[in-house]
C-alpha cells in the first residue's frame, strides 16, 4: 500500500532568516531600552542649585520653576502639572539652643493653622537623611483654595511632608507638597531630591 502525503511544502527558515528575526527582536528590545532610558533621562534630568551663603547644594528636577524670593532659601515647582503645582522647598528658621524638633513641629503647626484651611498633622516619625543626618519626618494635609477673588476653582487637598532637622542655631525644613491623589506617584521625585541635598 502506498501512502501519499498531501500537504503544503514546508518552507524551512534559513539560518540567515532566523538570525534576522533574532536581530529584529534584539533591535526592538534595544530600542525600547534606549527609549526608556531617554525618557527617564528626560524626566529625571536635574538642575543644580547652589547657595554658598546658606551652605546648601541640591539637584532639583529640570524644568521646575525655581524661586528664591520668598521666606525660604529656595522653592521649585512643577509648573506643567495640572492643578496644584508639586513643590519642593528648603527653608531655615532660627532656633534657640534648647529648641527641640518637637518644639519646631508645634511651632509649624501653630503658624500653618493660621493660614491653611483644615491643616492637620497625620504623623511624625524619625527619618534618616541620605547623608546620615538624623531628622524628623512630619506628614500633614491641608486644603488649598484659590486666592484670586476673580477666579473660581474648587479647593484641593494637599499632602505635605516636612523633613525637619536642627543644624547649629537654625532648623532646616525640607518640604514636599503634592496634591493628595498624586502624592505617592510624585514622592520618588522628592526622594531623589533628598539624595542629592547637601548642607
Amino acid at each position: 500500500m502506498t501512502v501519499v502525503e498531501i500537504g503544503e511544502p514546508q518552507n524551512e527558515l534559513t539560518q540567515r532568516q532566523r538570525w534576522s528575526h533574532y536581530f529584529v527582536l534584539l533591535y526592538a528590545l534595544v530600542a525600547v531600552v534606549i527609549g526608556i532610558n531617554l525618557r527617564d533621562a528626560a524626566l529625571n534630568a536635574s538642575a543644580v542649585y547652589t547657595n554658598v551663603e546658606a551652605g546648601i547644594r541640591a539637584q532639583y528636577p529640570q524644568r521646575w520653576l525655581i524661586d528664591t524670593d520668598g521666606d525660604y532659601i529656595f522653592r521649585v515647582r512643577d509648573m506643567t502639572r495640572i492643578g496644584f503645582k508639586t513643590t519642593i522647598q528648603v527653608a531655615t528658621r532660627p532656633i534657640a539652643r534648647n529648641t527641640t524638633v518637637r518644639n519646631l513641629v508645634d511651632s509649624l503647626t501653630l503658624d500653618r493653622s493660621q493660614t491653611l484651611a483644615a491643616y492637620g498633622v497625620i504623623n511624625t516619625e524619625p527619618f534618616m537623611l541620605p547623608n546620615e543626618v538624623e531628622a524628623t519626618a512630619m506628614t500633614y494635609t491641608y486644603v488649598q483654595s484659590e486666592l484670586n477673588p476673580y477666579l473660581q476653582s474648587l479647593p484641593t487637598v494637599i499632602e505635605g511632608l516636612d523633613i525637619l532637622t536642627v543644624e547649629g542655631d537654625q532648623a532646616i525644613i525640607i518640604t514636599f507638597l503634592s496634591e493628595v491623589s498624586q502624592y505617592e506617584q510624585t514622592l520618588p521625585i522628592f526622594e531623589r531630591f533628598l539624595g542629592t541635598l547637601e548642607f
Partner: peptide, 14 residues
C-alpha cells in the same frame, strides 16, 4: 525656569 525672569504668572481656574 527662573522666577526672576517672570513678569507675571497665572494659573487657570476650573
Amino acid at each position: 525656569w527662573d522666577q526672576e525672569q517672570v513678569y507675571a504668572l497665572a494659573v487657570t481656574d476650573r
